[in-house]
Structures are given as structure tokens and as C-alpha cells.
């Protein structure tokens, strides 16, 4: 896709996963830092959406429905996980964000494969 943005997305998904796991292991609810970071992951995905739309014109060979389907699904997933983690005052909040981090990572891998 776009090397810098893609690398940022991978790094953010990994950090979200580890941060979530750490919170769950330490038996703490998701704090402001973790929730803020989840919002940052969402922001990256929104940037991905905008950049994707902007760059799609001069691009052939990529199925738009498939590519933007993944982007849109990830964009739907993150706020759901974030709201859940915000409302959940137990270790399961960070765990939900960890699951979201793993999912976003896999989805970015797929986006990268689809975008050729």
C-alpha cells in the first residue's frame, strides 16, 4: 500500500495488542492512555481510508469492494471495541482491545495483499 502508513498501522496494532494484554495480566481496566491509543489506531485507519480513496484513481488491479470492505470493517470494529473497553471496568476491557489489535493486524495484512 503506502509503506510508511502501513508500517505505522502494523506497529500500532502490535502495540495495542501488547498494551491490552499487559492491562489484562495486571488486572486493570483500560485507562486513558490505552483508550487514547485505541483512538489513535482508529485515526490511522481513517487516514488509510482517505489515502486509499485518493490514490485509488490511478490504480488498477485492486478490487475496490474487497479493499474498502476491509478498511470499513476495521473502522467499524475499533470504536465498538473502544466503547466496550471504556464501559468495562475490569481486566476484560484491555482484553477486548487486545482482540481488536490482533484483528486489525490481520486486516492490515489482508489490505496490503489486496492492494497491488
Amino acid at each position: 500500500m503506502f509503506p510508511v502508513l502501513t508500517l505505522l498501522e502494523y506497529a500500532a496494532a502490535v502495540i495495542l495488542t501488547l498494551w491490552g494484554a499487559l492491562g489484562a495480566i495486571r488486572n486493570r481496566p483500560a485507562g486513558r492512555g490505552l483508550l487514547g491509543f485505541a483512538a489513535f489506531v482508529l485515526l490511522l485507519l481513517l487516514v488509510q481510508l482517505v489515502v486509499g480513496i485518493a490514490a485509488f484513481g490511478g490504480h488498477s488491479g485492486t478490487d475496490p469492494l474487497l479493499f474498502f470492505g476491509y478498511v470499513a470493517t476495521a473502522i467499524v470494529l475499533m470504536p465498538l471495541a473502544g466503547v466496550w473497553a471504556f464501559a468495562e471496568l475490569s481486566r476484560w476491557g484491555p482484553l477486548v482491545l487486545m482482540a481488536a489489535g490482533i484483528t486489525v493486524f490481520v486486516m492490515v495484512v489482508r489490505m496490503d495483499q489486496i492492494w497491488q
Binding site: G69, T73, W92, V96, T103
Partner: peptide, 23 residues
């Protein structure tokens, strides 16, 4: 408890499988 994690994973699969089938 553990059911929270299960619910989350089921939710993610519901979302992912629906998006896939829709596509």
C-alpha cells in the same frame, strides 16, 4: 469473566464473517 472474552471474539467473528459474506 471469561465469557467477556468469548463474547468479544464471537462479536469479531460475526462482524468479519458478515463483511466477508456481504462482499
Amino acid at each position: 469473566g471469561l465469557g467477556r472474552g468469548l463474547t468479544a471474539v464471537y462479536g469479531i467473528f460475526a462482524l468479519a464473517a458478515t463483511a466477508r459474506a456481504g462482499y
